[in-house]
Every structure is written in C-alpha cells, then in structure tokens.
Write a protein that binds this DNA or RNA. Structure first.
Length: 361
DNA sequence: AACCCGGGGCG
DNA sequence: CGCCCAGGGTT
C-alpha cells in the first residue's frame, strides 16, 4: 500500500491546485473537443490523442465527428470506412478498438457512455489513462489521468526520480495524483497538467519563466528540471528490407491486397510487399503466391519508413502483371483513394504521379 | 514485465 | 538524423 514516495510536507496542495486551474482557465487553447462535455466526443478525442500531437489530431477529429456525430453513427459504420477516416493517424488498432467499444455501448448500454468506472474500463481500448480522462473531463470525477505529460510535469514539480519507463512507476504517479487532484474541479486539474506539459513544461527547454506553478516546483528550485523525468532508453530498432511491386494489368489497373487482420498495419491495404530477394527469383516467387506472371520494367526510389520498433527499407519496382490472379485485387488509379493505406504505402503511391498523369487530377 | 503497434514534431 | 512522445492490448 505504501510506495517509497510521499508528498513533501512543504508542498502546498491547495495553492498548487489554485494556480494550475487559474492558469488553465485563462490560457487553455480553444480545441474542438473542448466545446462541450459530450462523453463520446471526449472519448474520441482521447483515443486520437494517444501518442499523437494536438495539431495532427484536430483535422481528423473534426472530420470524424462530422462523419460519425454520435455513437449510433459510428456503431453502424463499416470498419473499412472507419479505418479510412483514421488513415494516416497510425496505431490503427485504436480505431478498430474504438469501433468495437462503441458498438458495445449501443448494444449493452443503450447508447450511453457509462460513467461507472468499472463499466467504462471494460470497454475495448479504454485503459487507465483514457479511463481517468473520460471520468474527469466528461463526468467531473476526481480520477487520475496519467500520461507522459503528467509524469513529466509531476516528476519535476515533486522531484520524483523513478524511471518512468517502468510500468510500476505509473502507479506511483496515479497514487500521487489521487492525493493532490482538485475535488472541486478535477477536469481542469487534469487538463491543466496536460496543457502545462504541452505548452510550458516541455521535454526540452521548459519555459519555467512562464510557468504558473514555478513557485511550487522542486526541480526548478534545485535547477535540474532538464534532467527530469528519468527515463531508461529503449533498445534500437532493427531494419527489415522489402520489395514493393507496383503492377498494372492489361487495363492499366493496379494490383493491391489487404493486409492480414492481425499484426502490423492490420486490415490496411498495400501494393504487394515481399521480403527483399534476388531480383532474378522474384517473378517465380511472385507467381507461386499470386498465380500470375509479371514483367518488371523498372525501379522507383527506395522508401524508408521508421516505426517505433522497426525500420522498413522498401525498394520500389514497377511492372506489368497478368490478369489471372489468385489473390489480391485490381483497382483503377482513381479507386486507390477509396482504400485505407498506411503512410509507407502512400510514399510509394507518390511515385505513381511521376510515371502516370492519371493520378492527382 | 516485456513486447507489439504508427506517425509526426522538433532541435 | 535522434529523441520526444496526450497508451493499450497481449502474452
């Protein structure tokens, strides 16, 4: 029950709450999801904001809420359309989990996002952070919502030197937040911490001279705010090499295929992607798997794409393919835009414009 | 606890 | 380029 950290006696919790919330009320950015407390809107925004910057999320959020204004609209949508709305945001399991969970809200909770902690936590894609965010922002409950921002801010303010890369450390921060969160306005308190982390208490060169809680900050007092939080390094990514085949049939249509329903980039589409191999063997290996003959015509520019855990080096090859296919699908250049492709494949698609004037019109 | 899952911003 | 992430699911 007791962690090896306790709030310093001299830390003035009420003054900290007051200064943080006042600053937030005056300085908070006007963001689309802050227009009201609709739990569904808060939910969608929090899912999109996972691992993703505010400026990136804004256009996606607006488009998403226009297309799916309520849980009912999203629940009845086709998953491919939902993925299309998510195209380019990354972490596509977020979209699939949100879709699954919203369907459950419609079926099991009469379309009302549950305000009960245990019920809400059961929903797919709602973990400790999103749980606390929705409970505090949409339902005004005093629950912690600890993300990377909050850990950074609090590690500095209270001078906590635990390694934030360790899962256990997050529990420590949740315990700390429970002790210092405002019971009167937990929404502004939590959002204030995140806003502070985004605007002032940044990872590098924090703007301590502009900080509303500078007088409460132990790291500032010690002058080591730049060294906090402490985070152990993750291991380096490995590089994987591929060929991507941009092939057209006799009608000039492109061959694309749907990725498997699990693993990296699940259920998204791609031009055929094969492990890099001897170019001499490629046609034969292709035919064994796809059932059609190919004639390679030339190379494009190699594409590099960095994921969090792996780096892809993709060599682009153009060519022709026979019409008799066992797997995959032929689509016109115009139809390509109707399918969700990951960014790495969009980088390949960019090269079509140079080779054909059909695209981009 | 370790590993998997994308992408963009920034210095 | 390397580092930073507004995390959750799975095993």
């Amino acid at each position: 029950m007791s962690s090896n950290f306790s709030i310093p006696v001299l830390f003035n919790i009420h003054a900290f709450q007051r200064d943080l919330i006042l600053w937030y009320s005056e300085q908070k950015r006007t963001l689309p999801w802050r227009a009201n407390q609709d739990p569904y809107r808060v939910w969608v925004s929090e899912i999109m904001l996972q691992q993703t910057q505010v400026d990136t999320v804004i256009p996606y959020f607006n488009q998403f809420m226009t297309r799916y204004p309520t849980v009912y609209d999203l629940a009845k949508a086709d998953e491919q359309d939902v993925l299309k709305s998510w195209e380019g945001l990354g972490y596509y399991s977020r979209a699939r989990n949100l879709h699954t969970a919203v369907k459950e809200v419609v079926e099991e909770y009469n379309g009302e996002v549950p305000s009960d902690k245990k019920e809400l936590k059961k929903l797919k894609g709602i973990g400790p952070y999103t749980l606390g965010a929705i409970l505090s922002i949409a339902f005004d409950q005093a629950e912690p919502a600890v993300d990377g921002n909050v850990m950074r801010v609090i590690s500095r303010v209270l001078h906590i030197e635990e390694d934030i890369a360790k899962p256990k450390t997050k529990t420590l921060f949740e315990d700390v937040i429970r002790e210092i969160i405002s019971q009167e306005d937990p929404s502004s308190f939590n959002q204030g911490l995140m806003e502070l982390g985004a605007l002032i208490c940044t990872p590098k060169k924090p703007k301590c001279d502009q900080c509303p809680v500078q007088e409460h900050c132990l790291a500032y007092e010690y002058g080591n705010q730049e060294d906090l939080p402490i985070k152990s390094k993750s291991k380096k990514q490995k590089t994987e090499n591929f060929h991507v085949l941009v092939l057209t049939n006799s009608k000039g249509e492109y061959l694309i295929e749907k990725r498997p329903s699990d693993g990296l980039l699940a259920n998204l589409w791609q031009f055929p992607l094969l492990p890099k191999q001897d170019a001499e063997q490629l046609p034969e290996n292709f035919q064994n798997h796809y059932g059609a003959e190919i004639a390679l015509e030339g190379k494009g520019e190699s594409v590099k794409h960095v994921f969090s855990h792996v780096i892809w080096e993709v060599e682009v090859l153009f060519g022709k393919v026979g019409d008799d296919l066992q797997t995959g699908k032929f689509v016109t250049a115009q139809e390509l835009k109707n399918y969700p492709f990951p960014n790495v494949q969009h980088k390949v698609m960019e090269q079509l414009k140079d080779r054909s004037s059909i695209l981009g019109n």
